[in-house]
Nucleic acid binder design. Structure first.
Length: 495
RNA sequence: GGUCGGGUGGCCGAGUGGCUAGGCAGAGGUCUGCAAAACCUCGUACGGCAGUUCGAAUCUGCUCCCGACCUCCA
């Protein structure tokens, strides 16, 4: 059985066996959000994907330094205005207030999705000296030029000397020349493919810092180069982000890294695919959009009801991170049921006691094989849908054992224990799911109450008092509590 | 237009030369006072047209359709 981790590298366009630069340690940088408005659901998908990757690396025993930045400067709009400044102007706040407000919202959302916080969450504005230093290095190396207080990366020269520009996005410079849009300040650039690494601040520009080239602000791509270098070194293991960042952001990042320290930065580049709504890209302008909050509350024409964060997370795991994920109401409903099935099976499993005797037979082997496959699937480029498929095959076994359709004969108690551990680890530690059916703080009282009701119904059933027992069952159903009868007694679950 | 990724059973979604995931929905059965839950069985799908092959959904060519990116984007 192959237990090595394989990762698809966007740089080589192939799956490669993961070998960390330093044994036992992994450095991972993921491009975080620009905090100028509420988090987009698509952001959530990307960060949930990397959360699973982070969690799995931790599970494998790696010491992981996970850096995910917050962009709070330099990300310009079409008209040349800074996204942060615009947010500040529109709501009459300090740019830092805008950044703080949406950072808080972003963190709240990540918590709802049960995404682990990164080890370091650096902000672009907190690393202006590092960025200025990098600009100086790139200038000194001859891959940039200064004009009127702005500094541009000399893409053409870089291409001529290094010949690697475009390796990530598969782009060619001739095309870049021919198709580049008309942009403000483009006239300053020597070549349309050049990009700003330091921008001179105009009179009305609020966010500005002193630099060797006058007052200005850093270019959008620079922060990631500067901060990844600072916290992970000139060479590190994994760099991740959304597909849409491949070009120009990551392409330029690589160019900057090469321009500054002659390294590409990360060894493995991972890109998550886009989230679609009803088969097409989410877009505010044509109404084809839904926010995380709307999705949770059901307050949107695109969904028939609300879906909990864990259902949404499970839904995301059912698709591979490199495939587009199409959000539809129907698919969410299916995911909700699947999620519950998995959770309930796990609860049943954790409660299973081996009746003995402890003998190894065909069932033991079958379960061992499936458990091995679970591990194999996640090792194959974090294939969560396939991993889930394997877990669901085990769910059938678990439910059969619980219901007595399958005998414990031939299953060792050690394998049963391993299975319990495997489920706990995959569901909670790696997939990061939480059991929402497990009641909140009032669960002790509720449990007692439900126990009483279930006993009363059992009495009624013994007396063949069907109207009473059915009334209990139906009334609870209306309260979204479902009773599940089996040979072992009655269980209940919140719907 | 350029670049890239797709089109898989009613829906979602893996897979990728023969052994043909999984979830949801559906049908039949077991169980049940009746249900629900659970379990068992079932559908034999891979856009179209050619070709390679003993064998293709999987490879090649052509074609149709969809999506993303092309300096706003996770």
């Amino acid at each position: 059985m192959d237990h090595s981790l394989k990762i698809y590298n966007s740089l080589s366009k192939e799956k490669e066996i993961f070998q960390p630069l330093h044994p036992g340690r992994v450095g991972m940088y993921v491009c975080g959000p620009t905090v100028y408005s509420d988090v987009h659901l698509g952001n959530c998908r990307t960060f949930v994907s990397f959360d699973v990757i982070y969690r799995y690396l931790l599970h494998k025993g790696f010491k992981v330094r996970y850096v995910r930045n917050i962009t709070d400067v330099g990300h310009l709009l079409d008209d040349g205005e800074d996204r942060m400044s615009k947010g500040a102007r529109v709501s009459q706040l300090e740019p830092m207030e805008v950044a703080q407000k949406y950072s808080n919202g972003f963190h709240d959302m990540m918590r709802m999705f049960n995404a682990l916080p990164p080890s370091i969450e650096p902000r672009a504005t907190g690393h202006i000296p590092e960025q200025i230093e990098m600009v100086q290095t790139i200038l000194a190396n001859g891959y940039a030029y200064e004009i009127n207080g702005s500094v541009y990366f000399d893409t053409l020269k870089f291409i001529q000397e290094k010949g690697i520009y475009g390796m990530l996005s598969g782009r060619k410079v001739d095309e870049l020349i021919a198709e580049s849009r008309e942009l403000k300040k483009q006239d300053e650039k020597r070549h349309p493919a050049d990009f700003a690494i330091w921008m001179k601040a105009s009179e009305e520009h609020i966010m500005r810092w002193r630099s060797p080239w006058g007052e200005g602000f850093p270019g959008w791509h620079l922060e990631c180069s500067a901060m990844s270098t600072k916290y992970l070194g000139e060479d590190f293991d994994i760099h991740g982000g959304g597909n849409d960042l491949k070009f120009p952001h990551h392409e330029n990042e690589i160019a900057q890294n090469m321009g500054a320290c002659r390294h590409t930065g990360a060894k493995y580049w991972l890109h998550t695919n886009m989230l679609l709504l009803n088969g097409r890209k989410m877009s505010k302008s044509d109404g084809n959009t839904i926010s995380p909050v709307e999705l949770f509350s059901g307050n949107s024409p695109h969904v028939s009801k609300g879906y909990s964060p864990m259902v949404v997370r499970f839904f995301m795991l059912q698709t591979h991170y490199r495939s587009t994920l199409d959000l539809t109401d129907e698919a969410l409903q299916a995911a909700e049921k699947g999620y519950r099935r998995l959770m309930e099976a796990n609860q049943a499993l954790q409660g299973l006691a081996h009746p003995g005797p402890d003998i190894k037979g065909p069932l033991d082997e079958e379960i061992q094989t499936l458990m091995g496959q679970v591990e194999e699937e996640i090792n194959d480029d974090f294939n969560t849908p396939k991993t889930l498929a394997r877990l669901f095959e085990l769910v059938s076994k678990i439910n059969s054992l619980k219901d007595g359709h399958l005998s414990f004969e031939g299953l060792t108690s050690s394998t049963l224990d391993q299975l319990k551990t495997l489920f706990r680890e995959f569901i909670f530690d790696i997939f990061g799911l939480q059991d929402e059916a497990q009641g909140g703080g009032d669960s002790a009282a509720l449990d007692g109450l439900m126990q009483l009701i279930i006993e009363m119904r059992a009495d009624a059933r013994q007396r063949k008092d069907w109207p009473t027992s059915d009334k209990i069952r139906d009334t609870l159903k209306e309260l979204h509590i479902q009773l599940k009868d089996s040979k072992e007694g009655t269980a209940w679950v919140k719907e």
